[in-house]
Amino acid sequence: MRRADPEMVRRNCEQQSAKTEMRMKVFVFDLDKCNGCHNCQVACKDEHCDTSWLPYAAEQPDTGQFWCKVDEEVCGKVPHVRVHYLPHLCNHCDNAPCIAAAPDAVSKREDGIVLIDPKSAHNSEALVASCPYGAIFWNEELGIAQKCTGCAHLLDDGWKEPRCVDACCTGALRFGEEEEFESAIAQAEVLMPEAGTAPRVYYLNKPKRFIAMTVVDIEADEVVEGADIVLQRISDEEVVARSMTDEFGDVWLEGLEPDRYRMWIRKGGYLDLSAEFDLSEKDCSVPEMRFYRVPTAV
Rank of each mutant, 00 (worst) to 15 (best):
G112D: 12
L204Q: 01
R266T: 06
T197E: 04
L142N: 03
E179G: 06
A152L: 05
A212V: 02
L86A: 05
C34M: 14
H38L: 04
A100C: 15
D30R: 01
N39S: 13
K119I: 11
S17D: 09
I99P: 01
H92Y: 00
S274R: 00
M24T: 15
P258G: 13
D246V: 04
Y292G: 09
C98W: 06
W53V: 01
Y292I: 14
F277M: 11
V215P: 00
E276V: 15
E141G: 07
S130I: 10
D278R: 11
R82L: 15
T197I: 06
E140L: 05
A57T: 02
L154E: 15
E177R: 11
V106C: 09
H80K: 02
K33T: 07
F175D: 04
P55M: 05
R2T: 05
A186F: 13
P132N: 07
A241F: 02
V28F: 00
L253T: 03
T296N: 04
C68Q: 02
E276H: 15
T63H: 06
S285E: 08
F291D: 08
G176C: 08
A129F: 15
L54F: 07
W138G: 05
V74L: 15
R290D: 10
Q60F: 12
N35Y: 08
H38W: 01
A186K: 14
E247P: 03
L231H: 09
C169H: 00
P295R: 13
L115G: 03
E182P: 06
F27A: 07
C93E: 05
L191F: 13
G158R: 01
I218G: 03
V216H: 08
A58S: 14
N95R: 11
E219W: 07
S285Q: 04
D217K: 07
A188G: 12
E194P: 06
L31I: 10
D71K: 05
V26M: 01
Q146F: 03
S280V: 00
P103W: 10
R266M: 07
C151Q: 06
R290G: 08
V70P: 09
G268C: 12
E179C: 03
H122K: 10
A145P: 03
A145L: 05
I185V: 14
K25P: 06
C169T: 04
L127C: 08
D250W: 10
G36W: 00
V239D: 06
Q65C: 03
N95F: 12
C131E: 12
D221K: 03
V128W: 07
S274G: 00
F210M: 09
F291V: 14
H84K: 12
G268Y: 09
R293I: 14
V230P: 00
P55V: 02
Q41H: 08
M213Y: 06
F66P: 02
R290P: 05
I265W: 02
R10H: 15
E47S: 14
Y202M: 03
R262Y: 06
V81E: 13
H38P: 00
D250Y: 08
W159Q: 03
D272R: 15
E225H: 12
C98P: 08
R233Y: 09
P199G: 14
A4D: 14
I144M: 05
A121D: 09
S235L: 10
F29E: 01
S285A: 10
G226Q: 02
M244A: 12
L256I: 11
L154T: 15
I99L: 07
A241H: 07
V294S: 11
N205F: 09
L173D: 00
E59L: 13
L204S: 00
M213W: 08
L279C: 10
V26L: 01
Q15W: 01
V216P: 01
